[in-house]
Design a protein around this nucleic acid. Sequence first.
DNA 1: GACAGAATAAAACACATGTTTGAATTATGC
DNA 2: GCATAATTCAAACATGTGTTTTATTCTGTC
Lengths: 231, 231
Amino acid sequence: MTDDKQSTKTRLLDAAEKLFADNGFDEVSVRDLAAVADVNVAAVNYHFQGKENLFHEVIRRRFMGQKDTTLASLAEVMARAEERPELAAIIRAIVGSYLEGALVQDGGMRIMALITREMHSNYNTRHMVFFKEMIAPIFAAFSAAMLAARPSLRQEDVNWLIASVVGQIHHFIMRRVKCDSLDPADDTRSFMILAFPVLDAPMDEFVSAVTDHITRFSTAAVDGMHPEVTP
Amino acid sequence: MTDDKQSTKTRLLDAAEKLFADNGFDEVSVRDLAAVADVNVAAVNYHFQGKENLFHEVIRRRFMGQKDTTLASLAEVMARAEERPELAAIIRAIVGSYLEGALVQDGGMRIMALITREMHSNYNTRHMVFFKEMIAPIFAAFSAAMLAARPSLRQEDVNWLIASVVGQIHHFIMRRVKCDSLDPADDTRSFMILAFPVLDAPMDEFVSAVTDHITRFSTAAVDGMHPEVTP
DNA sequence: GACAGAATAAAACACATGTTTGAATTATGC
DNA sequence: GCATAATTCAAACATGTGTTTTATTCTGTC
């Protein structure tokens, strides 16, 4: 099990990452994986112990680091705060670092979309690991941060607010990925871009535009729903 | 082709609706459908012309009506408006009538989630019909309504706002369906309900709570981002 | 009651799937 | 340089898929 670069194992992981992200778990066959990675079909079961395990490795490799950077980014905001952390900064930290997973490499956004889909799909509980290892910690940190920023909020309020923020993040990721996956000549794609030109912009522009919008939208919403009482 | 009640055809449609909604298109086999509907496997291809067509019929039967009620509900708000329609009423009409699709019958929410998933999944462009026949008209009406309510908004602003609203709707639907599909003893489910007790409430309570939250959240956001200039 | 056409049924078809096998090849340690 | 382990490979395996075929039963009409 020497982890040489470009070994069969890593080639398989790379191919799996791209294929799974583009097509989803069920839609990719072991033979597809083997063909793209240029390895034998048996390699999947030899190096990982089945297709499902390979999938989990793909996720672990890319997504767990993401969790850490998100938490770190949030922690930094909290540390820099004088008395009360700023609500907009908190939301921006969460949204931004989540979306920036899309920028780390080509296809990063597809990976984020893959996770989103797998979490949303209620077909199988088999990939539920993400939820516990990944979502729960971020949720807890996000929640604590918002309570610190707005002490008058009840926990229940915070949960509603977070849900609204997360829903927006997911939606914009899905839109982008869907748009990217369509043929440039497809008129559904044209329709989407006409309504949302930023879907066709370079990924970094998209990320910053979306981050900005969600932050401003959500901050305004919180301010409107729960006006801050200045002490 | 006599459309008797309880005919093979309708039994197949009913079984398909439930199975597809619970498990998704690819996860349901023709043999599953036949078994639940208590018909022969060949019936799927005899009455519909293949599994995919059956799926489309399921959607058409349930979702196209939904589109009409949503548009009607929005039209009513616009007609009742004195000078400018009220923003909150518009948002409530859209969100409410979309979510109320969950109440029309047992499993209605699952159908909504099914549509959401199929639209989100970029694996195949094969179910794209929904987008053109269903989403586009609602989007256009929603957009026009918001412009009427806030004439100072640019079309681009409206598109962003709508995306934020739709993202929230999808997210709450997904949460509820995911929660419902989990075993009552599952601790992920417990975790979700702890943070969001309404996920465990009766469906009508859930729908009204979510409708209320999204409406207030989004209205506050729009008001905060684009303060209305009183004439 | 006989007969066409629609509906159902059991079986088979053709193919794709994840996984396993067992031999051939390559790498490793001494 | 050789024995031993690790890896690769082609082939086969077992199973599940959507669909088609062919025969049989049901149904309505004259």
